[in-house]
Design a protein around this nucleic acid. Structure first.
Length: 1168
RNA sequence: GGGCUUGUAGCUCAGGUGGUUAGAGCGCUACACUGAUAAUGUAGAGGUCCGUGGUUCGAGUCCACGCAGGCCCA
């Protein structure tokens, strides 16, 4: 048996299984530690810093995670290709409410049961077990999708070292005075004595319809310089001749009990407001009131407007009983009203308390939440009982009305049980709502709201009182109405660095930019202090211990410090022993830290503040805590801060992006990241959100298995920019696979097939010199350089979509569909000549470069392609068995000095000297002319196989003529004509018919309004005028009686008709086809037909490409015989026929049919 | 309710600084091609550029107000 061994480009007969390809490459990467090498091989180079936004592993990953992680992966791989070292530490986000809720659901318990049915220790243990439940699935997906990140040494936010780092950072903030205890407005249930989470508030049934007493309150404007404009209308006489009438601001509330806590009024700064003269319906006082113009109709009847049913002069109004007369006096916008002062509604004169900051209160302020949907368009602000109120008041420096309790601690006017505090004068001790279940049935019973409203009616401060039904949230446990109430919280004083946050944000490169300036920028502009406190169990505990009287406190910044403090406490006999003394594994979670009591300098015991901190602090601490900094690794931290690049979903804007930024600015006075991509959502193909419930969620594992990781990644990136929402349609992935990957695969297969036949070896050292390359080679290489520059540019500016599309267009349109198609003959014809070698070299370079360029996006396929091109397959050929193929990639070097993986290479740079714009331009001309010629053939029903004598191309200048002339051969070959003939003014005079098209852009700038007339005049130009303009460079014409001078640039001259010829045009380009058929052309056409049929027969007979044949034709058709006689050499060459003979009788042959002919043919393999 | 964002052919998307006749791919129809063939070419059908106003000689593009989808926040 004859056996030969040789090294070849691997060939693949079957269509690729892309899923399998992914798995094979993955296994090879693992075996050879390619990821590790991609980092270690860049040791000593500059670092590209990337932070992994930690995912939570308590749920299965979805396709959107593939999207987000592809974006991250692309830029890390790209920077590696540029030679940077890119360490990527993985991480896990492990704390937080979702995990608690999941555990509670599984255990069938609620928060109330913690500490009763289950100990905190057991509960937290359960959380810890739950949170990493899906870690294996995540790791699996990470690998299969080709996301390179260090999974072996991740940071985990529940580990003691991580928490310790958080503590150290908190202590730094504490030492800077940025940590303080304050309050925020939260839903609170007085009957249950507890705050409610938004999750609890979203329980079904919590929102109920209730009927409340509501009131439109009148706030009396203080007359001063700021408010004088409200009084500016002429003073009008009143029947009793009193002093000028007061102005009141109207504000509606459904909670009258909050009015005594009012400290401000909010208007919308762009909303129009009016001053209305009218009468108070309860006191009959003559008054003027301010309310939104859009709300006037809701409070005043159109029939009682002045001059309608009421007397026309105000003094004649008298004292109407039922109807309230009114008249608009003046109009302002909200901005005009801001900072006007008003008198307190429930003042100290009536026994209501003083409070701190009172002099800054009782002002009109801006509120971006104010609308004219209901009420008066002016909102009463009580900072202690509304979240909007609190925020707007804080921004405008309006104080809250706070009074001291028995211990001197400041609190709101309602205590924690839901009653007014003792300082509330006549209402002291009254229940705000019925939280104690007292009897309301008595005839004289009045709710607090009613009592307050009655008092206001008497005071002349109630403008309208009515019962109003609306929905209001209730406590899910007690069924009583919720209060929005100030609850203690620890805060980070982010507002102290607000300006710096804004300033540094402007240095961050946001993709898309609008997220940085809009969503994030606005958020910073309206920044409030960061509420750190969470009343939960599974999270990082707040490391602050306080004495009972709150006069002394300590913030712990490390485990070592804690141990020292415990020792002190033990010495002071506040603790019996130090639980961490024996080097036991330290757990900094609850309940263990709660059982630690410390001693204050004055010897008092200190207790830990019970709160946990916001989990967003955990993730914002990643840059520091992933290295256990600042406890250790200062150098490592410095080297890896700030990040060059991060990427997460846009929903993280106020989450991770903010906490990273805030902590970096406060701790390091730096940005945390220089470039950030905020990616959008992945939706189902109908645009619906993916959800398990709707059953439209796409399984990432199934997708990757079916289409392979590369097509999946490519689709996600190429279809839409990452920051747009993506509608995920599997059909789109199929298309990417077919159109891009299959085309690239075919191109490679084509190369491998013929390169192997010629035993071609790529050797950079002995390349055919660039100057000796054909037009086509130099063209595709020029295009390739342009592509390199373009892809680099897009990836440098973090736009992967444009990069992917550019690569895709190059591969499908330029490389495959033009270069390879037109070069085919060069690859298969004859011996390995210089030209053939040049073709192999050119195609090889294109494919290798494409492999590099695509490798960040499609890392598996790129690796496959690269290794096929650089490392040949060791194969054995035996006569009996044919060629044995192996799908595994062998490690025999085909291309010298190539790294073993494409991901270890350095990305080629665009060689500007190889870019030839003129060449690219004329090749485009060739493409367009060919397309036009094809379309003419189509119209004339002349198949491409029929050669034609010539095409005619009118040219208007020598440049075009020269350009087309250089690509004439390509055009002729592509459209099967013998010559390209140029028509210009000198040849066959009178043939060219020219027309002009106005250049509107130029003319518009010059003539403006007269453009239409000028355009019409240009389109009416005669042939003589056109030629005059061409020859003399200007043309004087008249438009609307006015002379104007046209320049050549003002028009586009084209020839879109050739009388007597069938023409096709594409913009300024026109082509005519000579469809005259000579006998010779006909014969050549026949010969081509015959070649085609013989090729088909070869293929159908299962012949190898390189097999030689003998052909015998039946000698029955004179035309065919003549054609064979004339073009026998051609036919033999094309079909690799050693012999082409005629015989009278061809037995055992096949019948070939074409055109009007039918011929019997016998095809035999020539054995030698 | 607010901020941001998207809306162009049946579907997925391109359309710097305004220029009159709005493009590509897929899909559809017809024809052609056939040693890259699960490919390719040519032609065709398919558009109130979300709507309404405005600026302009001219608006898919700029402005205002809406409508619809999405995200975040309240």
């Amino acid at each position: 048996m004859k056996i030969t061994q040789f090294m070849k480009y691997p060939e693949y007969k079957q269509p690729l299984n892309y899923g399998q390809l992914g798995e094979d490459i993955l296994a090879w990467w693992k075996e050879h530690g390619i990821f590790e090498k991609s980092v270690s091989s860049r040791e000593g180079q500059s670092t590209f810093v990337f932070y992994e936004g930690p995912p939570s592993a308590n749920g299965a990953p979805g396709i959107h995670h593939v999207m987000a992680r592809t974006v991250k992966d692309i830029f890390c791989r790209y920077q590696t290709l540029l030679g940077k070292q890119v360490p990527r530490k993985g991480g896990w986000d492990t704390h937080g409410l979702p995990i608690e809720l999941q555990v509670e659901k599984e255990l069938g318990i609620t928060k109330e049961d913690i500490g009763h049915k289950i100990s905190i220790a057991d509960y937290n243990q359960r959380c810890k077990e739950t949170v990493m439940r899906f870690k294996a699935q995540w790791d699996d997906l990470t690998e299969k999708m080709g996301y390179w990140v260090d999974l072996d040494d991740p940071y985990v936010t529940f580990e003691p070292e991580y928490i310790e780092s958080c503590w150290a950072l908190l202590k730094r903030l504490y030492d800077k005075g940025l940590l303080y205890k304050g309050y925020t407005i939260q839903p609170y249930s007085p009957a249950a004595g507890t705050g409610l989470s938004s999750h609890e508030l979203n329980q079904p049934g919590t929102y109920k319809d209730v009927k409340d007493t509501t009131v439109v309150a009148q706030f009396k404007v203080k007359r001063d310089a700021a408010s004088e404009k409200l009084f500016a209308a002429p003073v009008w006489e009143r029947p009793n001749g009193d002093s000028p009438t007061d102005v009141f601001i109207l504000a509606w509330t459904t909670t009258p009990w909050t009015l005594p806590a009012n400290t401000g009024l909010a208007v919308g700064k762009n909303i129009p407001y009016v001053v209305v003269r009218t009468i108070n319906p309860y006191t009959k006082e003559y008054i003027r009131v301010v309310l939104a113009k859009a709300r006037v109709k809701s409070y005043f009847s159109e029939f009682t407007e002045k001059g309608k049913t009421t007397p026309s002069t105000y003094s004649d109004w008298g004292s109407p009983e039922r109807q309230i007369p009114w008249e608009i006096e003046a109009e302002f916008t909200g901005a005009d009203l801001i900072n006007i002062h008003y008198e307190r509604l429930f003042g100290t004169k009536e026994g209501f308390p003083n409070f701190e900051g009172e002099e800054r209160a009782f002002r009109v302020i801006n509120g971006d939440f104010v609308t004219t949907e209901d009420g008066t368009g002016i909102v009463h602000i009580s900072p202690t009982f509304g979240a909007d109120d609190f925020r707007a008041a804080q921004l405008a420096d309006i104080p809250a009305l706070m009074v001291p309790d028995a211990e001197g601690t400041l609190g709101p006017i309602v205590d924690r049980t839901g009653r007014y505090v003792p300082q509330m004068g006549e209402f002291a001790g009254r229940w705000v709502k019925n939280y104690d279940g007292h009897d309301e049935s008595g005839a004289d019973y009045k709710t607090l709201d009613e009592s307050i409203v009655i008092k206001m009616k008497g005071d002349g401060t109630a403008f309208k009182v009515e019962k109003y039904e609306h929905t209001y949230p209730h406590c899910w446990r007690t069924d009583k109405p919720v209060l929005y109430y100030p609850l203690d919280s620890w805060f980070i004083k982010t507002t102290a660095v607000k300006d710096r946050l804004i300033e540094l944000n402007k240095t961050i490169n946001w993709k898309p930019e609008s997220t940085g300036t809009g969503r994030f920028g606005n958020w910073l502009e309206n920044l409030v202090d960061w509420n750190l406190s969470r009343s939960r169990y599974w999270g990082t505990p707040l490391p602050i211990w306080r004495t009972q009287d709150r006069t002394e406190e300590i913030c712990i910044g490390s485990i070592a410090e804690l141990k020292v403090e415990i020792d002190k406490a033990v010495a002071a006999e506040i603790m019996t022993h130090n639980p961490y003394a024996n080097g036991e594994k330290i757990d900094l979670h609850r309940p263990y830290v709660d059982d630690i009591f410390l001693v204050s300098p004055t010897g008092q015991p200190m207790y830990r503040e019970a709160d946990l901190i916001d989990v967003w602090f955990d993730s914002g601490a990643v840059p520091y805590a992933q290295w256990h900094y600042p406890i250790e690794n200062a150098e490592k931290f410095q080297k890896n801060f700030p990040a060059d690049f991060i990427a997460e979903g846009v929903d993280q804007t106020r989450g991770w992006f903010f906490t990273l930024h805030a902590l970096a600015v406060m701790l390091e006075d730096s940005v945390a990241f220089k470039n950030v991509i905020a990616n959008g959502l992945v939706l189902a193909k109908d645009g619906q959100k993916m959800s398990k419930r709707l059953g439209n969620a796409v399984d990432p594992f199934a997708t990757i298995k079916q289409f392979g990781p590369d097509a999946t990644r490519w689709y996600l990136i190429a279809n839409a920019p990452p920051w747009d929402n993506l509608k995920f349609d599997p059909a789109g992935v199929t298309e990417v696979q077919r159109r891009f990957f299959s085309t690239l695969f075919n191109t490679y297969s084509f190369y491998a097939l013929y390169a192997n036949l010629d035993a071609f070896e790529m050797n950079e050292k002995s390349r055919v010199p660039h100057a000796d390359l054909s037009e086509l080679d130099r063209w595709i290489l020029s295009k390739l350089q342009s592509l390199i520059a373009e892809v680099r540019g897009h990836l440098d500016s973090y736009d992967p979509t444009k990069a992917a599309r550019a690569i895709q267009d190059f591969v499908t349109d330029q490389l495959s569909n033009w270069y390879v198609r037109l070069s085919r003959r060069r690859f298969w014809k004859g011996e390995l000549t210089t030209d053939k070698r040049a073709a192999f070299e050119t195609l090889n370079e294109c494919l290798q470069t494409v492999a590099q360029l695509m490798s960040p996006i499609a890392p598996f396929f790129a690796e496959w392609l690269y290794r096929n091109l650089t490392f040949g397959e060791f194969r054995v050929k035996s006569e009996e068995l044919g060629v044995e193929n192996s799908t595994t990639l062998n490690s025999q070097l085909l291309t010298l000095n190539s790294p073993e993986s494409v991901h270890l290479t350095l990305l080629v740079e665009a060689d500007a000297t190889r870019i030839d714009p003129k060449l690219e331009e004329r090749m485009e001309l060739a493409q367009r002319i060919s397309s036009l010629a094809h379309s003419l053939r189509k119209k004339s029903v002349l198949k491409v196989r029929q050669p034609l004598q010539r095409i005619l191309v009118p040219v208007l200048n020598d440049t075009t003529k020269e350009q087309v002339g250089l690509v004439e051969d390509l055009i002729c070959a592509e459209i099967n004509v013998k010559h390209v003939e140029f028509l210009d003014d000198s040849s066959e005079s009178g043939v060219l018919v020219k027309s002009v098209k106005p250049n509107f852009k130029r003319l518009g700038q010059q003539y403006g309004p007269r453009l239409k007339a000028v355009g019409a005049r240009i389109q009416a130009m005669t042939a003589a005028e056109i030629s005059k303009l061409e020859k003399e460079g200007s043309l004087a014409v008249e438009v609307d009686g006015q002379p104007i001078t046209l320049a050549p640039d003002d028009v586009e001259i084209r020839t879109d008709d050739l009388p007597g010829w069938l023409v096709a045009t594409d913009g300024p380009l026109t082509v005519a086809l000579d469809v005259t058929l000579t006998d010779e052309l006909r014969q050549e056409g026949l010969a081509r037909e015959l070649v085609n049929r013989l090729q088909n027969l070869r293929k159908d007979s299962g012949l190898e490409v390189q097999d030689k044949i003998r052909v015998t034709l039946a000698d029955q058709q004179p035309e065919l015989t003549a054609a064979v006689a004339a073009f026998g050499d051609y036919i033999r060459t094309e079909t690799q026929a050693l012999a082409l003979t005629f015989a009278a009788d061809v037995s055992g042959g096949s019948v070939l049919e074409f055109d009007d002919y039918s011929v019997l043919v016998l095809l035999e393999v020539a054995t030698s």
